[in-house]
């Protein structure tokens, strides 16, 4: 990475590394989902991983949050190796995951969903503060606070999924396809909010198929294809490079 930085000055990034993935390989049985992936996320950034279906983006996120064990490689978070740790230990360290397909608890109210997001938090005052922050970011959730989550629209459910993950007061927030199945206007709203969350001090790793929308708000970007890392660079630079956009980003 450092060698790359020397001859590619736009790769220079400020901020200390928060999450470093080195030579990560993940398999489902004999099928390689992610191969030899290395990436890092620095404090205060929105880092996005873009790529088409089956590129291994979601697998990467799931491996980080302890849902899948990697076959090879290391994941270092704030100096500690966390690969292969159980899900609850990863959450305890401050990595919260808003999963693909939202996976809110449909039979619980918005309120109860948010409560569960703060499952590992013991400080009641801090949880209340976090809850106020989430409801301020997503006023729609405040309106629906006592509604069963399963009865809300897709956009509202997505807001809840992000809000629920934030209730764990994460240092690093993992977002898996927050734009999936949403109307463009809602995508803009969600992405604006993600930017706001970053500005309030939470580092974000965003996985997206909607590459152009992701690159618009991201600071740094990785492009994956069939389990391999293809490209990386400053998000704005990548989105301006027509050849790259045509080849990888469906532009």
């Amino acid at each position: 990475m450092s060698a790359q930085t020397a001859d590619q000055p736009w790769l220079a990034r400020t901020g200390e590394p928060m999450l470093e993935i080195a030579n990560l390989s993940v398999f489902y049985g004999n099928i390689a989902a992610v191969q030899d992936l290395s990436l890092d996320v620095r404090k205060g950034e929105i880092v996005t991983v873009v790529g088409s279906n089956g590129a291994g983006k979601s697998t990467t996120l799931r491996t980080i949050s302890g849902l899948i064990k990697p076959r090879k490689g290391t994941i270092t978070f704030q100096g500690d190796q966390i690969q292969g740790k159980k899900g609850n230990e990863v959450v305890r360290r401050g990595i919260c995951h808003s999963p693909e397909g939202r996976r809110i608890f449909p039979r619980m109210t918005v309120d109860e969903n948010l409560d569960l997001g703060a499952f590992l938090q013991n400080d009641k005052a801090a949880v209340a503060a976090e809850r106020d922050r989430v409801l301020e970011l997503f006023p729609r959730l405040a309106e629906r606070i006592n509604q069963k989550a399963g009865t809300m629209s897709g956009g509202e459910q997505q807001m809840l999924a992000v809000g629920r993950a934030m209730m764990g007061n994460p240092t690093l927030l993992l977002l898996d396809e927050p734009s999936m199945g949403l109307a463009p206007i809602l995508v803009d709203l969600i992405f604006d909010t993600i930017e706001k969350i970053r500005d309030q001090g939470t580092t974000i790793l965003l996985v997206e198929q909607n590459a152009l929308a992701a690159l618009r708000i991201a600071d740094y970007a990785y492009v994956m294809e069939s389990g391999h890392l293809k490209l990386e660079g400053d998000a704005k630079q990548l989105s301006r490079d027509d050849a790259i956009v045509r080849a990888y980003l469906g532009g």
Partner: peptide
């Protein structure tokens, strides 16, 4: 209590529950 909420979360969606930090 806390344990009851964790059970409910597992009943609703085990994967999501583990993402919230519920020790399955």
């Amino acid at each position: 209590g806390r344990l009851g909420r964790a059970w409910l979360a597992i009943r609703e969606d085990e994967l999501a529950a583990s993402m919230m930090g519920v020790p399955l």
